[in-house]
């Protein structure tokens, strides 16, 4: 995974709560077997509307999405994170993220920064009053800057550390392989296995 320490880019105000992962990427795009190339799928239904924020300059070149509460609810599809990244987003700001989406973001290198709703509202105003305003997301200081707004954000320390270091989870876990093997030796015999198949 690529290291992330800070990023500055155009902020995109998405004044909407409950943006579910079916909106971020509709199911029809999940038939692909690749991990990249989903930029066309991002918000594909909403992007058919010429007034949608990502169809307006300079927001179309945005890289920091500033969304309403409960962002990423619904389906566990990691494709939602891939689509945001493929489009060019490096960070999403919201006052509340769905658990699975937040987890997926951390694994795939997208910063999901949790801010107070009041700060989200202030940033929305900045981005709407001065389109093209740059938003800075600093993972070291856990601070967001957008125009005159400077606000702290939350991200759990472990995810932050992994993002800062660009660490691969599987390699980290495999360091504990002996502990996994030891645990497996203690599993009760009656626990089911899928093989051999029984009917």
């Amino acid at each position: 995974m690529e290291k992330f320490s800070s990023h500055t880019g155009i902020g995109v105000p998405l004044r909407q709560s409950n943006v579910d992962t079916d909106q971020i990427i509709p199911a029809v795009y999940l038939k692909r077997i690749t991990r990249t190339g989903f930029e066309d799928a991002l918000f594909s239904s909403w992007r058919k509307n010429p007034d949608f924020i990502l169809n307006r300059k300079p927001y179309d070149a945005g890289s920091v999405l500033v969304a309403g509460a409960d962002f990423g609810t619904g389906s566990s599809r990691e494709h939602a994170v891939w689509a945001l990244k493929d489009y060019g987003f490096k960070a999403v700001l919201s006052s509340r993220f769905a658990d699975i989406f937040r987890g997926n973001s951390g694994k795939a290198g997208l910063v999901a920064a949790e801010l107070a709703q009041e700060d989200i509202e202030l940033i929305w105003k900045e981005l709407e009053n001065a389109p093209g305003t740059q938003v800075s997301v600093d993972l070291h200081s856990k601070m967001v800057t957008a125009g005159s707004v400077v606000a702290p954000f939350q991200i759990d320390d472990y995810t932050r550390w992994r993002l800062l270091e660009g660490l691969d989870d599987i390699s980290l876990t495999l360091r504990d392989e002996p502990a996994i093997t030891a645990f497996e030796a203690t599993r009760p015999a009656w626990k089911p296995t899928t093989l051999p198949a029984k009917s």
């Binding site: 566990s76 990691e78 795939a108 989870d169 599987i170 876990t173 996994i180």
Partner: peptide, 15 residues
């Protein structure tokens, strides 16, 4: 439910 990165993690480590 888990995302695809976690699916790969479980495949590789069962944890």
């Amino acid at each position: 439910g888990i995302g695809t990165s976690e699916v790969e993690h479980v495949m590789a480590t069962q944890t």
